[in-house]
């Protein structure tokens, strides 16, 4: 894999009590690439995202974000690292006492940006996720899919270099999941956002790995890769019991002879 490495995990070990969640996990993420982490529930997928964001600390190993080791940084020093990363949480994690506008603008308010500069940015970002009309609504008035899209807008407003998606389609119907996947594909292919996508839904994972977006003037269109065409800049990581048992493109994953992988994909 060529390109600039923006994120690297080296032999990361994480244990909660007696439960060894990550056991020597190592991988690299290159600029513009989307890494799809799949695995059974409890295999440590979400833990990887929390460690990258500095929300938790590894027991052993190193995590480098744009070359900077973050595993031992103090909470106050992590703020600068976190500003490079956006995260969409599993259940959206919207602030339920704030409106959609305030949720999306949260980071800008915290950075002390003037209100008159915030409004157009919020509208532009909500426009990208197709929710400009919901700007004055409270999270309790939104559907599950709308909440995920607001969470995506909130994570995007700071223009992060890396996006982390923690099961962004979990619990959503196929049509809404499709909308979320299209937004993520558009971010990857049109805006060049690097990402880590955690899911246990194989359908969503393969959608991301086999479809790509093009921007023809005003409209974004989505295309499926042909059998001999590999355009989507996406690679899979398969976790089992805290270890990476597969890393590579979707074509190799499908052709794997490993009995566990075959069973997992069945």
């Amino acid at each position: 894999m060529n390109g600039e490495c923006v994120l690297e995990m080296k032999n990361v070990v994480k244990q909660y009590g007696d439960n060894l969640v990550l056991d020597g996990v190592s991988f690299k993420l290159f600029r513009g690439e989307t890494k799809i982490i799949i695995g059974a529930s409890g295999s440590g997928k979400s833990t990887i995202l929390k460690l990258i964001m500095g929300l938790d600390r590894p027991d052993e190993g190193e995590i480098l974000v744009e070359g900077q080791e973050i595993a031992r940084l103090r909470e106050s020093d992590l703020v600068a690292v976190r500003s490079k990363i956006g995260m969409v949480f599993q259940e959206s994690a919207l602030f339920d006492s704030l409106t959609v506008r305030e949720n999306v603008a949260y980071q800008l308010y915290e950075d002390g940006i003037d209100d008159d500069k915030i409004e157009p940015k919020v509208r532009e970002t909500l426009g990208f996720v197709g929710l400009e009309d919901a700007i004055d609504k409270m999270p309790s008035e939104l559907s599950g899919g709308m909440k995920r899209r607001v969470a995506l807008a909130r994570a995007l407003i700071g223009r992060p270099d890396i996006m982390l998606y923690d099961e962004p389609t979990a619990g959503l119907d196929p049509i809404t999941s499709r909308k979320i996947n299209e937004l993520i594909i558009a971010l990857r292919d049109i805006q060049g956002v690097t990402g880590v996508f955690v899911t246990h839904r194989l359908r969503d994972a393969f959608t991301l790995a086999t479809e790509y977006a093009t921007n023809g003037g005003s409209a974004t269109t989505f295309h499926r890769e042909g059998p001999l065409l590999c355009i989507a800049n996406t690679r899979f990581l398969l976790l089992r019991d805290g270890k990476i048992i597969f890393e590579g493109p979707d074509e190799l994953l499908r052709r794997s002879d490993d009995p566990y992988i075959k069973r997992f994909l069945a």
Partner: peptide, 14 residues
């Protein structure tokens, strides 16, 4: 439990 505190930390707030 709804990860709002983690979201707050992720957005750079103590």
């Amino acid at each position: 439990v709804t990860e709002q505190i983690n979201a707050m930390r992720a957005l750079g707030t103590d």
